[in-house]
Simulated scan of single mutants.
Amino acid sequence: MDDEKQLGINIRELRKLRLLTQDELAERAGFSLQHVGDIERGKANPTLSCLLKLAEVLNVAVSDFFVQKDQAPLDDEGIRQCLLDFIGKAGKKHLSIFYTLYKGMR
């Protein structure tokens, strides 16, 4: 499964756990219903600011969007190693996204 699709599935599950419809999430986050639907289906690649707003509305950390069900939470060193592994294998598209996230967090 690709990263965008897994991200969308995770966001959908968190939304449903909070008993929100896509329309309610879109309204609270200030996005269109189409955009929220596209994110949840893995058809849109949300920006860092979009993920931050969704996390705020859902009352979760942005990192919660990236946890897979079969994964145990990682400690700081585990996270660091995962990121280094990802960067080492990433193609141009993912490196560009990662760099954008990095710039937004500085």
Rank of each mutant, 00 (worst) to 15 (best):
N59Y: 00
L17Y: 08
A55K: 02
G104F: 02
D70P: 00
F66C: 06
A72R: 01
K69W: 00
R41E: 12
E56R: 11
M1I: 11
L7Y: 04
G8N: 10
E40I: 14
L58A: 07
G91W: 01
H35Q: 15
R18V: 12
L95W: 01
G78S: 07
F86M: 10
T21H: 09
P73D: 04
L83T: 07
R41P: 07
E77C: 02
S49R: 12
Q34L: 13
L7D: 06
L84R: 08
S63A: 12
E40G: 13
D23N: 15
L84P: 00
G30I: 14
E4A: 15
V60F: 01
K103T: 08
I79S: 03
N59R: 10
F65P: 01
N10V: 13
K43Y: 11
G42R: 13
D2V: 11
F65E: 02
T21K: 15
A29P: 06
C82H: 03
F86K: 09
D23C: 12
K93Q: 08
L25G: 07
V62L: 02
L95A: 03
K53N: 08
C82Q: 08
R106C: 05
D76I: 06
L74K: 08
G42T: 13
R15M: 13
C50E: 06
R106M: 05
Q6S: 14
G42F: 12
K89N: 08
L48M: 10
